[in-house]
């Protein structure tokens, strides 16, 4: 089947089998390997991307279901030159070790911060229950998200003051 998906702002059309999962479409058809696969039961969250602005597990969406929609992956949320505040937060607070869960963790946390600019530790932990990390014990991930939240609030306050 032909499917067109806009990924990180660019439309891509590919001929795929209906069974192609969105994560395989991203990794294998588009070569965007920042999105990872860590399980086969839709639990670990390593494959989290944004689909039309909402965080989803790309291992549990068919590529054909994403037809006509917009996908943002870890490669599209920030760049090395201009990191997303969450990317900075994870770096500053040592919120990653092996890095495998990190893209999904960041994409999931990004959605939290859109709804809640100042989440408590409890809120962050509950929100990230669908993103497994085996390295950090989650301790520094909580701080990483709070670091990003503070930076984003500051940026917003700065923008408000400019207006």
């Amino acid at each position: 089947m032909n499917v067109t998906v806009t990924v990180n702002g660019k439309a891509h059309t590919r001929d795929v089998e209906p069974r192609t999962l969105l994560v395989h479409f991203l990794r294998e058809d588009l070569g965007l390997t920042g999105t990872h696969v860590g399980c086969d039961t839709s639990q670990c969250g390593a494959c989290t991307v944004h689909l039309n602005g909402e965080a989803v597990k790309s291992c549990t969406v068919l590529a054909v279901q994403a037809g006509g929609m917009e996908v943002t992956t870890i490669e599209g949320i920030g760049t090395a030159a201009e990191l997303h505040p969450l990317q900075t937060g994870f770096w500053e607070k040592h919120g990653l070790q092996c890095g495998f869960c990190t893209p999904g963790m960041i994409m999931s946390a990004a959605e939290l911060l859109r709804h809640d600019p100042d989440p408590s530790e409890e809120t962050i932990r509950h929100h990230l229950e669908g993103n497994y990390c085996r390295c950090t014990g989650y301790h520094n991930i909580v701080f990483a998200v709070q670091h990003a939240a503070a930076a984003m609030r500051e940026r917003q306050a700065g923008q408000a003051a400019d207006d």
């Binding site: 990794r27 070569g31 965007l32 390997t33 920042g34 999105t35 990872h36 696969v37 992956t73 870890i74 490669e75 920030g78 760049t79 090395a80 990191l83 990317q87 994870f90 770096w91 500053e92 040592h94 990653l96 890095g99 495998f100 990190t102 893209p103 960041i106």
Partner: peptide, 21 residues
């Protein structure tokens, strides 16, 4: 010190075995 290796991981540029073609 914050880690030198992190920029590639936080931007999705890490290269794990299954990423190689």
């Amino acid at each position: 010190l914050k880690r030198k290796e992190d920029p590639r991981f936080i931007t999705g540029a890490g290269q794990y075995t299954d990423d190689f073609v």
